[in-house]
Design a protein around this nucleic acid. Structure first.
Length: 300
DNA sequence: ATGGTCGGTGACCGA
C-alpha cells in the first residue's frame, strides 16, 4: 500500500474549484495540503470535496492566505497557527495527525494472537504551510518572512522530537538553489532566492528534514527509484506575467519536507505540471510524493 | 485598477 501526499498553492479555492475537483477525482491524492485558499472557513466549498471522500481541516481568513488539509483518512489533533508569535493573525499554518490504516501481513488476517484487529493505526503527522512571500528585501514584509521561517524551524525541531513520520508541505516561497531557478541572474537578490531565506532553508534541513525533491548529488527524483543523472529542472511556480509558463521560466518554491521516518518511506516525487497549463490555472502546480507503508518485515 | 497577469475586493493590494 502506498500513500500519496500533494502540496498545492491553489491561489483561491473558489476560483480553482473546477480544476481542483477534477484533480481530486483523477489524481486522487490521499492527502492534499493546500495554500492560498483565500476564503473564510464558512465559505470553503466543503461539500463537493467531502463527497469525494475527503476529511477537511481548515484554517482560512478573508481575502488573503488560508491553508487546508484534505485527507482520505481521519484527521486528529488539528492545530491551527504557527507557534512563536501570538500576535500573528495570518492563516499560514495548519497541522494534523493522520490515522493510517496499516494492514498487517497480506491483509487477510482478522486479528493477531492477542485479538487485536489487523488494521492498526500508524501515526503520520502532516502540515500545510504558506510561508510569507516577503515582497521586497527592504520591506517590513521581508522581516516578517524571516521571523516566520525562524518560528517554522523552531516548531519543526519540536515535531522532530516526536520521532514519527512527519511531512510539512507547502509554498515555502524559497528556491533553495540556483538550480531551482530558470534564470538565476534575473532573480538574484529577489525575496525567493535571497541568501537570508536560503540560509534559513538550509537551517531547516540541518535539523534533519529532507527535501523530497532532491536526491543528494543527483538532482530531482522523478519516479520510483529512477533518479535521472542530469535531470531537467522541475519547477513548481511560473509567474502569470511575461508568458512565463510558455517559456518555462519557473522556480521550484513549493516543497515537501520530511522527517527521516517519512523519508525512509519515500518512493516518488513529481510535479503535476499539466495543471499549470490549463485555462484559469493557478500559478503553482501541485507537487506530489509517494510514501510506501512499512511492511511487517521492516518492523522486525 | 501605476506595464505586463492573476484573484479578491470595492475604488487597490498582494503575489
Amino acid at each position: 500500500m502506498t500513500i500519496s501526499i500533494a502540496a498545492w498553492n491553489v491561489n483561491s479555492v473558489k476560483a480553482r474549484i473546477v480544476h481542483m475537483l477534477d484533480w481530486l477525482k483523477q489524481d486522487a491524492p490521499d492527502i492534499a495540503l493546500l495554500q492560498e485558499t483565500k476564503c473564510v472557513d464558512d465559505a470553503f466549498p466543503k461539500m463537493e470535496i467531502e463527497d469525494l471522500g475527503y476529511n477537511l481541516a481548515l484554517f482560512g481568513e478573508k481575502t488573503y492566505n488560508g491553508v487546508a488539509i484534505l485527507s482520505k483518512f481521519p484527521l486528529e489533533d488539528i492545530r491551527r497557527g504557527l507557534p512563536g508569535d501570538s500576535g500573528d493573525a495570518q492563516a499560514r499554518y495548519i497541522e494534523a495527525v493522520v490515522s493510517l490504516p496499516r494492514v498487517t501481513g497480506a491483509g487477510c488476517r482478522v486479528s493477531d494472537k492477542k485479538g487485536i484487529p489487523s488494521v492498526t493505526p500508524q501515526a503520520l503527522r502532516v502540515a500545510s504551510v504558506y510561508v510569507p512571500n516577503g515582497q521586497d528585501a527592504a520591506s517590513e514584509k521581508f522581516q516578517y518572512k524571516l521571523r516566520f521561517l525562524d518560528r517554522l524551524r523552531a516548531h519543526m525541531q519540536t515535531l522532530l522530537a516526536y520521532d514519527e513520520m512527519l511531512v510539512i508541505g507547502g509554498d515555502y516561497n524559497i528556491a533553495p538553489e540556483n538550480a531551482d531557478v530558470h534564470d538565476p541572474k534575473a532573480w538574484e537578490g529577489s525575496v525567493l532566492t535571497h541568501e537570508e531565506v536560503r540560509r534559513r532553508f538550509r537551517g531547516i534541513l540541518h535539523l534533519g528534514m529532507y527535501d523530497a525533491g532532491v536526491v543528494p548529488g543527483a538532482g530531482c527524483r522523478v519516479s520510483d527509484k529512477k533518479a535521472v543523472s542530469s535531470p531537467a529542472p522541475l519547477y513548481t511556480w511560473w509567474d502569470y506575467r511575461n508568458n512565463a509558463f510558455a517559456r518555462d521560466d519557473g522556480l521550484r518554491i513549493d516543497h515537501l519536507l520530511l522527517s527521516s521516518q517519512a523519508a525512509d518511506a519515500l518512493s516518488g516525487w513529481r510535479v503535476e505540471k499539466k495543471l499549470r497549463g490549463l485555462d484559469k490555472a493557478s500559478d503553482h502546480a501541485p507537487v506530489v510524493i509517494i510514501l510506501r507503508e512499512r511492511s511487517e518485515a521492516q518492523d522486525l
